[in-house]
């Protein structure tokens, strides 16, 4: 059941993005920016938390999940250390993902070469 819920929620988030890409002329890069920001805002107003509770990885693996981690971290940071927590908490919560993106991204770029599209 857990897997099915992840599949459904993750799939639906992607469908929303697909409709936006097909119906508007937004490029995928812009959609990514919108989705992260949307994740932050939805978390702040308390909508994303229930989606995560229900969908698990289906809600945390898509990019709004990245926004969710950032927003949740920022709020937690404020609770722990006041205003400075707003600056520390977000990136601290997402540090694993960001560092992995830098390191694995760098390694992959150095080790592999791009190929002609078929």
């Amino acid at each position: 059941m857990e897997y099915l819920r992840a599949f459904l929620v993750g799939g639906l988030i992607c469908v929303i993005a697909q409709i936006i890409i097909d119906k508007t002329s937004l490029t995928p890069a812009r959609v990514l920016v919108c989705f992260v920001t949307a994740g932050v805002i939805l978390t702040a107003i308390g909508i994303y938390e229930p989606i995560v509770k229900f969908g698990g990885a289906g809600a945390t693996v898509p990019l709004p999940g990245f926004g969710y981690a950032l927003a949740k971290g920022a709020i937690k940071g404020v609770e722990e250390m006041g205003a400075m927590g707003a600056f520390v908490g977000g990136v601290r919560a997402a540090a694993g993902g960001i560092t992995a993106a830098v390191v694995f991204g760098y390694l992959a770029a150095v080790l592999f070469n791009p190929r002609m599209k078929r």
């Binding site: 993750g10 799939g11 988030i13 992607c14 469908v15 993005a17 697909q18 936006i20 890409i21 995928p28 890069a29 959609v31 990514l32 989705f35 693996v61 898509p62 990019l63 999940g65 990245f66 993902g97 993106a101 694995f104 991204g105 760098y106 992959a108 770029a109 592999f112 070469n113 791009p114």
Partner: peptide
């Protein structure tokens, strides 16, 4: 399409592809 762009794997793809 968006199914591979929106998950965090797509984020990794958008990092590696231009760098490479």
């Amino acid at each position: 399409g968006a199914g591979s762009v929106v998950p965090i794997t797509g984020f990794a793809n958008s990092i590696v592809s231009p760098a490479m």
